[in-house]
Write a protein that binds this DNA or RNA. Structure first.
Length: 756
DNA sequence: TCCGCGGGCCAC
DNA sequence: AAACGTGGCCCGCGGA
């Protein structure tokens, strides 16, 4: 209920939905764009300069559309002139030119106004006495807000040019310039040394927005910050995982009215664009930077109130996410050692194979760019007249189906694999190596709606086995990877409480074999590892957990839709607790418009209640006509159902079923993410005590660098760290591998056997 | 030259 | 008529 009074509940579209929506929007914009017509009013000018009346049919990007509306408003308000005679029509080019001028005019105006309105308790620290006074005042604080301004965003290369601090007790906000190109200021090292006791004091709480960045920057200048109290970016992600932007200024613009910041806040980009912060004049820098920590401080107080009203979320924040920041920083600092020689050789090898494949492809398909789907589609479906099924797709699935039609397709598939491996991994990874010789990817603990980690620049969570081989352990060290075995099915077993589903885990039997034997009603001997029953069951369970449609399942299993339906029916009959659990999630998300993990992480689905009610009502109506318990899969073909009813049902079916799939998945995936985060905290602490280092996490796996003298007992310790994060009503299992080179892991038992 | 988008594809 | 959850990166392509 508490969620209702806040504007937290917004739905962020998945990448897939976003793409679909964008495509649709583009289509519509291309057909008819009244916005543009409004701006032009009298018509439009064609490329050749001819003026035409009527509505312009032009494909406008959403950005341009917004810009033109902005220009229109500004002209009407007299903010800016068009510079045109009144009888002339505005061209698109001219309108965008006016827009640029308008932006510059506004920017200058905003900055001037900001400086003029600098609050009296915003202060520049430019002299030693001022700094000394600041340090004295800091001693009376229990927490402060902190931020760094830098030359750029690369935490391994860029530098701090200033620090801002907000002092709640002393009630003032400072900016300490240390490396601006102009203006009176103190030396960076001197300032950092003066602040070091305070920065490294774990008992003085620090409040930051996106603390990871500033902690990295401070490490770069030799200071390891301690005492992170609250990260407003992380807290915001917990309070609303659907937020479209987590930039502080955007959040302030949206939520500032709740904590005393009425006016619009402008992002760095809006105000400074590509200007480096050390080029910014000090009076401007003060008002911009001090406002940052001022905002952060007030935002923190406001967020704290809301967290305190939500026990579980507060705990999740305090005990998991907040303390995880340091783990994340360490993980990124450790980075990965890349075998450059191996990468170079492997790259050459791949390049040779690609050249050979290209020659074959040229013979088969002509001199086109084989990386271009549009050029390939032209050759396949226009020239060679291959069956296109109205899709003209060139993806792997389609190509595999077409393999029999043309000899060159097999080569194209090989070529795809080779170029993907080379371009995305083998060539790309070494290029990201920083000056310290290590590859430092970024791990983000609050970038996903479910609570999983994401990774980027480069993404270390999607390296295929062949690319993992580029990563090696430094001398005297080994790579150790521990992963939770079947964590998501185990969580489903726990949450559903299904006796039969839990049984194999309690008895230490193979889950998929047991499931297969029960569902397919065949002896367990026929369902062992490698059997077709077990394989099908694995796909089937994924379908159950993620709510796959019968169509997709039938495709994946190579059976008819009816057989797929029967399979799922049999599964639910065999495991009624699982069925009950899934239905109960559907019910609760319909009632609450959110679901939560065991640790209280929420995923919210705004507006679902309404749609789910409509969907259920329409489904009942259809069922009353067909006389069935559920809407038949082939309802479109049933003549007795009125067309309008079919259409109304179809319209809500997609979104409602999508939310249902997402909600079941969010609980399972999100709980697994919570478990992994707790495990990382334990593993990190243990590694630190040993002088070892965590360097990555891949959803259900923790990867670390350990001594090559590691003992079996120490491996058990690590596994126990992982297991201590789990509290389910079925046992958890952790598998550990050791290796010199990632992707060449050897099970711990074999590793120690062979060493002995 | 840079940007955004779409198709495609890698991981769990 | 549309068809499975969570992510990020590469390339081509069209537009500024």
């Amino acid at each position: 209920m508490l969620n209702m009074n806040l504007q937290f509940i917004e739905e962020k579209d998945s990448q897939k939905t976003k793409r679909a929506k964008a495509a649709q929007a583009k289509k519509e914009a291309a057909l008819h764009d009244p916005t543009w017509a409004e701006v032009w009013e009298t018509g439009y000018i064609t490329k050749t300069g001819k003026q035409k009346p009527g509505i312009l049919q032009m494909n406008l990007t959403a950005t341009d559309k917004a810009r033109l509306l902005d220009v229109k408003k500004a002209i009407e308000a007299g903010e800016i002139g068009t510079g045109l005679d009144s009888n002339k029509t505005l061209t698109k080019t001219k309108a965008l030119e006016i827009y640029r001028g308008l932006m510059n005019q506004r920017k200058t105006g905003i900055l001037r106004e900001m400086v003029e309105k600098t609050p009296t308790n915003y202060r520049l620290i430019q002299t030693v006495p001022q700094l000394r006074r600041l340090v004295e005042d800091l001693e009376r604080e229990t927490f402060v807000a902190l931020d760094t301004e830098t030359t750029g965003l690369n935490v391994y290369q860029d530098e701090i040019v200033g620090l801002s601090l907000s002092l709640p007790v002393a009630d003032y906000h400072v900016y300490i310039p240390v490396a601006h190109k102009a203006g009176k200021q103190l030396d960076r090292d001197l300032v950092l040394e003066a602040l070091r006791p305070m920065l490294t004091n774990p008992d003085l709480g620090k409040v930051l927005h996106n603390a990871k960045f500033d902690i990295h920057m401070l490490i770069r200048h030799g200071v390891r910050m301690k005492g992170l109290l609250h990260d407003t970016r992380i807290a915001m992600a917990l309070l609303n995982e659907n937020e479209t932007s987590y930039a502080l200024k955007n959040l302030a613009t949206k939520y500032g009215k709740y904590f005393g910041f009425q006016e619009e806040s402008h992002t760095f980009d809006e105000l400074f664009g590509k200007t480096r912060f050390d080029d910014v004049a000090l009076d401007v820098a003060l008002v911009y930077a001090a406002k940052d920590t001022h905002l952060t401080l007030e935002f923190y107080k406001w967020q704290k109130e809301h967290l305190q009203k939500r026990d579980k979320l507060l705990q999740l924040h305090r005990d998991i996410e907040n303390v995880l920041v340091d783990v994340c920083v360490d993980m990124e600092q450790t980075g990965l050692l890349i075998d450059r020689e191996f990468a170079a050789e492997y790259g050459d090898e791949l390049r040779a194979e690609i050249v050979a494949a290209e020659a074959k492809l040229k013979k088969a398909f002509g001199d086109i760019n084989f990386n271009s789907p549009s050029q390939l589609a032209k050759v396949f479906y226009d020239d060679l007249k291959l069956p296109d099924n109205n899709k003209r797709s060139t993806d792997v699935k389609t190509l595999k189906a077409l393999q029999g039609e043309h000899d060159g397709i097999k080569t194209l598939l090989e070529y795809r694999g080779l170029t993907k491996l080379l371009g995305t991994y083998v060539d790309a990874l070494p290029e990201k190596i920083q000056t310290d010789g290590r590859l430092h990817g970024s791990f983000n603990q609050v970038q996903t709606v479910t609570g999983r980690f994401s990774s980027n620049d480069p993404n270390l969570q999607n390296l295929p086995p062949k690319a993992r081989k580029l990563v090696i352990a430094p001398k005297g060290m080994l790579i150790l990877g521990s992963d939770f075995s079947q964590i998501e099915p185990r969580i489903l077993a726990h949450l559903s409480g299904d006796e039969h589903f839990r049984e194999p885990y309690l008895l230490g039997q193979d889950l998929y074999s047991t499931l297969a034997s029960r569902v397919f009603k065949v002896p367990i001997e026929e369902c062992r590892d490698g059997s077709i029953y077990r394989k099908k069951m694995k796909i089937g369970l994924l379908a159950v957990m993620y709510g796959t449609s019968m169509f997709t399942l039938s495709q994946q299993l190579g059976i008819s839709i009816e057989e797929a339906q029967e399979f799922i029916r049999d599964f639910f009959t065999s495991y009624p607790g699982v069925h009950k659990f899934i239905l109960s999630v559907h019910e609760s998300v319909k009632k609450d418009e959110f679901v939560e993990t065991i640790d209280g992480r929420k995923r919210r689905f705004s507006g679902h209640r309404e749609q789910a009610k409509a969907y259920d009502a329409l489904a009942r109506k259809i069922c009353s006509i067909t006389g069935t318990a559920e809407v038949p899969a082939n309802f479109w073909k049933i003549k007795e159902i009125p067309r309008a009813l079919k259409e109304a049902y179809q319209k809500v079916k997609g979104p409602v079923e999508s939310v249902r799939r997402q909600s079941v998945n969010a609980i399972i995936q999100g709980t697994a993410a919570d478990v992994m985060k707790k495990a990382l905290l334990q593993v990190h602490a243990y590694c630190k005590s040993k002088g070892w280092e965590l360097f990555a996490t891949v959803h259900d796996e923790a990867l670390m660098l350990v001594s090559d003298q590691i003992t079996p007992a120490e491996v058990r310790e690590i596994e126990n760290c992982m297991l201590s994060a789990v509290d389910l009503n079925v046992p958890m299992k952790v598998d550990t591998e050791l290796m010199k080179r990632w992707g060449e892991g050897i099970k711990k038992s074999e590793w120690f056997n062979q060493a002995a």
